[in-house]
Design a protein around this nucleic acid. Sequence first.
DNA 1: GCGCGTTGTTGACAGTGTCTACACGGCAGT
DNA 2: ACTGCCGTGTAGACACTGTCAACAACGCGC
Lengths: 222, 222
Amino acid sequence: MSEAAPGTRDRLLQAARDVVASEGLEGLTLRAIARRAGVSHGAPLRHFPSLAALLTAVAADGFRRLVAEIDGHLARAEAAAAAEGRRLDPRTRLAVAGRAYVRFALSDPGVFAVTFRPERVDVDDPDYAAAGYASFQQLVDLVTDAQATGWMAGERPEDVAAVLWAHVHGIAELALHGGLPAVVGHDDTDRLTALSSLMSLGVETPPVPDPPTIRPPREEPR
Amino acid sequence: MSEAAPGTRDRLLQAARDVVASEGLEGLTLRAIARRAGVSHGAPLRHFPSLAALLTAVAADGFRRLVAEIDGHLARAEAAAAAEGRRLDPRTRLAVAGRAYVRFALSDPGVFAVTFRPERVDVDDPDYAAAGYASFQQLVDLVTDAQATGWMAGERPEDVAAVLWAHVHGIAELALHGGLPAVVGHDDTDRLTALSSLMSLGVETPPVPDPPTIRPPREEPR
DNA sequence: GCGCGTTGTTGACAGTGTCTACACGGCAGT
DNA sequence: ACTGCCGTGTAGACACTGTCAACAACGCGC
């Protein structure tokens, strides 16, 4: 056990992610999570006061993963540009972050859905609120940088960030569950995000490196 | 009974809207709908094969109401412009439609939420799909008009429409349940939609008439 | 009058979230 | 070393859910 045995609480969180990935939101029940984690149906309540609290923890973690993912994408894009002796201009960084947001939603649709389901999550939980705020603040910072170049100067950065967030979030939802009846195919997502950033940022999407992202698809030996 | 007694099926649909409005999505159960409609818990299954089917009907109806609402806003805005001897240019019409979309979401948050919850709705239902397609087509038509003036010419109108839909839809979600932790107040919605249309359409929002919309707040004598 | 399909009620069933009672295991205090 | 206690886990109950089967009333063509 060189891996520092996970502890039941973390096993429950992982089980919740597994269940929502394989069964979808409607199969995401407390007892299913307990079964997947290999504990009795009452055990989760020793670690979380309710199912909503458990899902809230998953959601808060989702926010933190999202922030990390976007940071990673930005760092890689910046490194790729540096290799050519260039630097990314702030508006391009915004476009890269938006792309990373959509990629994140597509790579973990279950967690993404849970994170934004107020009927399943306790939105007043301080940890959830803080994680969500941090995620939003990441975007605000990018906007502030871009405004320093004159773009959208004079607008409140929070407003601009909110509009941009709405933009990418809508694209992500559209890309996920067809959104509207399959007018847009899943593979068209890239074209849409490109068009999206062109329209709202006035920026042609850069040739992003688009990382290896191999990361084992979370298989468990059982 | 000069109003042509509603019929159980329609009463169930209205009951579903009432329940989601007062109890929220998590209280939207088959038995609660039956209670509200004043029938036994098994009666709804005589009209809909499942709860999901009932909610799908509510959602499809939501799409149709949305289309009507947007048409109404457009007509009023057009009339107001005509009163001054002007005509609305197509891009302004797009902005008006976007505003109407957000207004609709805020005026009936429950129905709006149900409409876009694939875990509660049968997204493959032909009626639902058709209603959703019609709603999207309404937007595509507006985009096509705008493209005739040179704006975004060369892009597929469906792509532009999808991006715009994502845009407004995200704004609506943000305005509804705080979205992100209350960074943006509800009253700021108008400023956001204005900024939104400025960013993606390059249009200053027009002084929209913003109709009476009194419509009784759906009280029932019980 | 007679069947029969439509609409409604009632009672069952498995599954759910949550609560309570109980058991075990380590650990501090005496 | 014994005692108490707290954290963790189990098992059973409760009210609630969606769905189904059995049954009753009703209208309507024959």
